[in-house]
Design a protein around this nucleic acid. Structure first.
Lengths: 116, 116
DNA sequence: TTTATATATTCCTTGACAGGAATATTCCTT
DNA sequence: AAGGAATATTCCTGTCAAGGAATATATAAA
């Protein structure tokens, strides 16, 4: 399992796992336009503050977000690395697919032959 | 929520949701090298056949895989669309990030001013 | 120093989901 | 036709994650 963008060992949430939750995906989408405080995020996404905080915690622990404290408030913003990782995984992926992909026939022939 | 790669309405499993499960991710990785039968997949990933079938079902229903029947066997192979979708989402994403990303200071100033 | 604001944390409950085991289904072989 | 191989499905169980509600913590403001 070489180029996998994350290894799910232990209890840590993976990038994909974090993004799979709709509210968290929405948070990420929202933060594309720039950093925001917890309150702003909760407001715009119609989330209660505690749930917002929880999702933000997951996103932070998975490495997708980082926090900056500003007195009372916490400002969350996106981190680049996870997306870069995802992107490089995806591109190496697509490369393969464009080339040899429809060797279904070949595989079928293989199977027939193996039926000695 | 415009460019989101999937909308989680109803019961369907999203691309990310499907990929978030380690065994399913492993299946996808495995199928990068070409189509395979259920048995092969189960063997190589040390899965019991029923669990393999279940994961393959999820992956198929999420649009990540497609099946071809060959008599007794079912040959699963990757579909391109979900990855293309993910990729386009990601690239539009990275574009934004490279440009205006660290407007943290700006945002901080905004916040201070709003404290009228 | 009291009060208010912003955020995090805890506890609880519920639903979803993954694995195990057994069984059903389909097709091939003899 | 009968038995075997490949795959799918069902039922059960345990775990885990998400939301609700209440509360804790920290900082600002009065």
């Amino acid at each position: 399992m070489s180029g996998m963008p994350e290894n799910n060992s232990g209890k840590e949430v993976t990038t994909l796992g974090a993004l799979a939750e709709p509210n968290r995906m929405a948070i990420v989408e929202l933060l594309r336009d720039g950093p925001l405080t917890v309150g702003e995020i909760a407001d715009r996404l119609q989330l209660r503050q505690p749930q917002a905080s929880k999702h933000l915690k997951v996103l932070s622990e998975s490495g997708i977000l980082e926090v900056k404290a500003d007195a009372n408030r916490r400002i969350y913003k996106l981190r680049l690395e996870p997306f870069q990782a995802l992107d490089s995984w995806l591109s190496s992926f697509r490369k393969l697919m464009e080339e040899r992909f429809d060797n279904l026939e070949e595989y079928l022939r293989e199977l027939q032959n193996k039926d000695k």
